[in-house]
């Protein structure tokens, strides 16, 4: 477990500040040796375009005419497009071998941040720089549910950029990792949510990614699967990769991550050692509840 004292945290802060004045050279020599940057997120903004809400008209306070009321009732849902900002100016640097937990309340922008970092969701402003290949595992990252698990393994592997022969060579180990046995020949619509999550995890990590992002995907698996995924995560980190983990479980973050980001309303509240961030997060919650 990494050190959780205040000194370590303040050092981290200095590392981040150093880039402004003295350049990246200063960042290369912190107290705890860190690897090279694998992911740089720079003032990232992501907003969703949402159709079909109700247009929020400016209320004048006067009772409008009958014509006007009828017209507005009819057109209230026409052209109702709203921009929903999900991530608002997040910046941080992730390094080789790091495992970073992301915490925050529902709707804080955690999943959107991961998607944007993985290049799956266009962002509106800022920049993301990353090394190598990103793999994102999310609860929503469904493959094609009408097809068999077998077919999904082939599709997923090909989409990751493996060749047909490479997918075939890894097929057995993928099925074994997902622990699906004969279910692999059934359509995914027949799978339980845990089974589908296991298959997704197995497919996404068939090619060991440089950056692995896990969005609550472990919570649906059973204990045996969680242990296997933990091994996989350690494998990624051992190969100088970086792991991101979004979870509502403080224990999962504590046991798998040494650093944590706390997001609230799309903004970064705190970035530091997991233990310290979790403590501050819990304190903020308990204060709010009291």
């Amino acid at each position: 477990m990494a050190g959780t004292n205040e000194v370590d945290f303040s050092l981290d802060g200095e590392v981040f500040g150093a880039g402004d004045g003295t350049g990246p050279a200063a960042a290369a020599a912190p107290a705890k040796p860190l690897g090279n940057p694998t992911l740089v997120v720079d003032h990232l903004h992501v907003s969703y375009r949402v159709f079909g809400g109700k247009r929020l008209g400016a209320s004048t306070g006067f009772k409008p005419s009958l014509y006007r009321r009828l017209f507005e009732r009819a057109t209230r849902s026409v052209g109702a497009v709203s921009e929903v900002p999900a991530v608002r100016g997040v910046s941080f640097v992730a390094r080789e071998g790091e495992s970073i937990g992301i915490i925050g309340r529902n709707g804080a922008g955690k999943s959107t941040l991961l998607r944007a970092m993985a290049g799956l969701m266009p962002y509106s402003d800022g920049a993301v720089y990353a090394q190598g290949q990103c793999a994102l595992l999310g609860v929503n990252a469904a493959l094609l549910t009408g097809l068999t698990g077998e077919r999904n393994v082939m599709l997923g592997g090909l989409a990751l950029g493996l060749s047909r022969a490479e997918v075939k060579a890894r097929f057995d180990s993928i099925v074994e990792f997902a622990d699906l046995a004969e279910f692999i020949h059934l359509p995914m619509s027949a799978y339980s949510s845990g089974m589908a999550a296991r298959l997704r995890f197995a497919i996404s990590t068939a090619k060991v990614p440089d950056i692995l992002m896990i969005d609550e995907a472990l919570s649906t698996g059973d204990t045996a699967f969680q242990r296997r995924s933990r091994d996989k995560i350690n494998q990624v980190r051992a190969q100088a990769g970086t792991v991101f983990l979004v979870s509502h479980s403080a224990n999962a973050i504590r046991s798998m991550c040494e650093r944590a980001l706390w997001l609230d309303k799309g903004q970064l509240v705190m970035d530091g050692p997991a233990e310290a961030v979790l403590e501050a997060y819990n304190r903020a919650y308990n204060d709010a509840a009291a």
Binding site: A27, P37, D42, A127
Partner: peptide
Amino acid sequence: PPPALSSAAAAAL
């Protein structure tokens, strides 16, 4: 919130 790199510094890094 922690201090962030400037955009130019991030791009340079």
